[in-house]
C-alpha cells in the first residue's frame, strides 16, 4: 500500500518535471493563432472608431469628423428601434431554442437507426437544404404558402381548415420563419452532435447493458450527459449571434403586413440605407451587436458553469 502511493507521487513528480521543461512548446504552438488574429482582426479593428465618426471614405479614419455617440443616440432614439431590437431577439431566441431541440433530437434518433443505408442516406439528404440560398428558398416558400393556390393551403383546405396567410399574419410569420430556418439547418447542425456521439466510449453502453438498463435509460444516463459539453459550447457561442436573426431569410419573406413582428435590425438598417454607404451607422450597429454578444457570452458562460457545472473555456 505504502509503496504504491510512493510510486504514484514519484510518477507525478517526474511528469511535472517533464512538462515544465517543455512548456515553452505550448507558447510556440499557440503563436500562429495569436499572430494571425492580431494582424487580421485586431489591426483592422481600429475601424470601429468609425462608429463615433461621420466617416467619409475620401477623408479616411484620420480625417473624418468625430461625432461621439451620435450614431448610437440616433439608433436608440429612433421611434422604431425598440420594436426592431425586440423582434430580432424574439426571432433569434426562438430559432436558437427550437433549432437546438430539433438538431439534438434528430441526432439522437438517427443515432439509433440500425439499417446502414437508412442512416447514410438520411444523413446525406438532411444535409442538403443548408446549401440552398434564401433567395431561391424565398421564392419556393412564397409559392408553397400562397394563401390561395399554395400547396400547404390546399392541403389545409382538403383537411377542412381555413386557409392561412402564413406570410401576411404576424404570428404565422414567426412560425414560418422559425420553422423554415429549423428545417434548413437541423441536418447540417446535427453533424456536430453526431461527432460528439461518435466519441462516446462504447464500453459505457456495454456496461449499462450488463446492468440491464434499457434503451431509454442508456440515452438518459449515458448519451445525453456525454452531449452536454457540446450543447453548452454551441449554445453559449450562439449567444453571440442573438442580434442576428437572419437577414437573407427575413428579407426574402417579409412585407409591410408583418413589420410589427418581422422587422429586424438588419432589415431596418438595410432600409435606412446602409447600402447607401452610411458606413458609420453600419459600424455603430455592428458594435452594438458585438457588445450585446459579448455580454451574453460572458453571461452564458457563467450560467453554464452554475447550471451544468461546465466551463467551456
Amino acid at each position: 500500500m505504502q509503496t504504491v502511493i510512493q510510486q504514484e507521487t514519484i510518477k507525478k513528480k517526474r511528469e511535472r518535471i517533464v512538462r515544465r521543461r517543455d512548456s515553452w512548446h505550448l507558447y510556440l504552438m499557440i503563436l500562429p493563432a495569436i499572430v494571425l488574429t492580431l494582424l487580421f482582426v485586431y489591426v483592422p479593428m481600429g475601424g470601429i472608431v468609425m462608429a463615433f465618426q461621420e466617416y467619409k471614405p475620401y477623408l479616411g479614419i484620420t480625417g473624418s469628423k468625430w461625432v461621439g455617440l451620435d450614431q448610437f443616440v440616433f439608433l436608440f432614439e429612433y421611434p422604431d428601434s425598440s420594436q426592431v431590437i425586440w423582434n430580432t431577439l424574439r426571432i433569434a431566441v426562438l430559432k436558437l431554442f427550437f433549432g437546438t431541440i430539433a438538431t439534438l433530437t434528430f441526432a439522437l434518433l438517427i443515432n439509433e437507426v440500425r439499417k446502414k443505408w437508412v442512416r447514410n442516406s438520411v444523413q446525406t439528404f438532411v444535409f442538403l437544404p443548408h446549401f440552398l440560398s434564401w433567395v431561391v428558398l424565398g421564392g419556393i416558400f412564397i409559392e408553397l404558402l400562397d394563401p390561395k393556390n399554395g400547396l400547404v393551403n390546399q392541403l389545409l383546405g382538403a383537411l377542412g381548415f381555413e386557409s392561412i396567410f402564413f406570410l401576411g399574419d404576424n404570428n404565422w410569420f414567426l412560425v414560418t420563419v422559425v420553422g423554415t430556418e429549423v428545417w434548413k439547418e437541423f441536418g447540417y447542425g446535427s453533424i456536430i452532435f453526431l461527432a460528439a456521439l461518435a466519441g462516446i466510449n462504447p464500453a459505457l453502453y456495454e456496461a449499462a447493458q450488463l446492468d440491464g438498463a434499457n434503451k431509454w435509460k442508456q440515452m438518459w444516463h449515458i448519451t445525453l450527459p456525454s452531449l452536454v459539453p457540446t450543447i453548452v459550447v454551441c449554445l453559449t457561442l450562439s449567444l453571440s449571434q442573438v442580434l442576428n436573426a437572419g437577414f437573407d431569410q427575413i428579407f426574402n419573406l417579409y412585407n409591410p403586413l408583418v413589420y410589427a413582428k418581422g422587422d429586424i435590425i438588419d432589415t431596418f438598417v438595410y432600409r435606412i440605407g446602409l447600402i447607401g454607404g452610411n458606413y458609420s451607422f453600419g459600424t455603430a450597429i455592428g458594435l452594438f451587436k458585438s457588445v450585446v454578444g459579448l455580454i451574453l457570452i460572458v453571461g452564458g458562460y457563467r450560467l453554464a458553469y452554475k447550471v451544468a457545472g461546465y466551463k467551456i473555456f
Binding site: 481600429g46 471614405p57 475620401y58 477623408l59 479616411g60 484620420t62 473624418s64
Partner: peptide, 8 residues
C-alpha cells in the same frame, strides 16, 4: 500608421 497613409 495604416490609416495615416490612406485617407488624407
Amino acid at each position: 500608421s495604416l490609416t495615416a497613409c490612406s485617407g488624407g
